[in-house]
């Protein structure tokens, strides 16, 4: 059983994807053509990108509930600033502002010792309020159509969000698995005491992680804004749940220390497949909410099962 669970952690998501693919290929003829598949992957890329950041946060032993508000903040800053500052300037300022919010999250959590739950929940409300303040509660239309080139175009027949996802995946993968910093993130989440005793600056590491989460959310905010050509202060309500679900479903354990970015990448696509499947059924959007919630509980169930099993094995004296 433990072996199965360990295996699941590594390849469980692929089994789910294969199963979902077979199912969709049977029920939907459209699923067999490339553009549909690319469409599904593109829809999955938004959640996946933020979930890369979230995976880092969970690996470091925390999490961030403020990501959807960061997307909204990014969106309104860009919409408000584009007329005066142009594309580059507005995007940079939006991203810097988002990273600043991540910095505050990190400082409150590491320096003030406030729990990630309270900190990021409060940040979520504060940022949403701030975004609404910036636009006065309106949605702001962006008149520069060229801005669409950022997120609503194709490159070599591949939608650009997929390109961004792949690039960011590579970057985050390298950070987490190949750099000393990434390994120190895992160390902080795996055994904080030992990490501190080994001379690591755990506070700094965690703070940077929260900045990276905000950065990933901000990037998706840019992409979504470019596609919609509207600055939306309340962008993507409920998206935080999607992101957490993707990270956990991908096999990243809530216990910290073990981040699985490959799993995250494919879990993002899997969630998108669920949406696609539900769309085929022409059900209302609420069913999608329900489906994501249930998927999360399923992923948690597996995670919980694994922890339980390890505990029983320990009591019985079984080496695992």
């Amino acid at each position: 059983m433990v072996k199965f669970l360990k295996l699941y952690e590594k390849i469980g998501i692929f089994i789910l994807i294969v199963a979902a693919s077979i199912f969709l290929a049977i029920v939907s003829p459209n699923f067999r053509n490339l553009s549909t598949i690319l469409g599904i992957i593109m829809q999955g890329s938004y959640g996946a990108i933020i979930a890369f950041g979230m995976t880092l946060a969970i690996t470091s032993g925390g999490f961030d509930l403020s990501v959807e508000a960061v997307m909204g903040l990014t969106s309104v800053i860009i919409a408000m600033l584009i007329p005066t500052m142009g594309f580059a300037g507005s995007i940079i300022i939006a991203i810097v502002a988002s990273c600043f919010a991540g910095l505050i999250n990190g400082l409150l959590i590491t320096k003030m010792g406030i729990s990630p739950l309270i900190t990021t929940l409060a940040m979520q409300v504060i940022l949403r309020g701030a975004s609404l303040l910036i636009t006065g509660g309106r949605q702001v239309v962006i008149s520069q159509k060229a801005f669409m080139s950022i997120g609503a175009t194709e490159f070599l027949h591949i939608p650009t969000p997929i390109i961004y996802m792949i690039v960011l995946f590579i970057i985050f993968y390298i950070i987490l698995n190949m750099t000393a910093f990434g390994r120190h993130i895992a160390a902080s989440g795996s055994n904080e005491q030992a990490a501190k005793m080994s001379g690591l600056n755990v506070s700094l590491i965690k703070t940077i992680v929260y900045i990276l989460v905000a950065l990933s959310a901000s990037i998706v905010g840019v992409i979504r804004t470019s596609q919609a050509l509207i600055g939306i202060p309340t962008m993507a309500p409920g998206f935080t749940l999607n992101v957490l679900t993707i990270a956990i479903l991908g096999g990243t354990s809530l216990a910290g220390g073990r981040g699985n970015l490959i799993g995250t990448l494919f879990a993002g696509i899997f969630i998108s497949m669920i949406y696609y499947g539900l769309n085929l059924l022409h059900v209302q959007i609420f069913y999608q909410m329900l489906a994501v919630g249930i998927t999360l509980l399923f992923a948690l169930f597996i995670d919980g099962l694994r922890n339980r099993y390890l505990e029983t094995a320990r009591i019985r004296g079984i080496r695992v």
Binding site: M178, H184, G189, S190, A194, S198, L200
Partner: peptide
């Protein structure tokens, strides 16, 4: 004082990892 989710080698050299350039292990 070991980190369970890192490898033996990483634990031995934690905080003092040999690197390529400034950041890559």
């Amino acid at each position: 004082n070991l980190v369970p989710d890192l490898s033996v080698a990483e634990n031995i050299f934690i905080g003092r990892e040999p690197k390529i350039g400034k950041s890559f292990i």
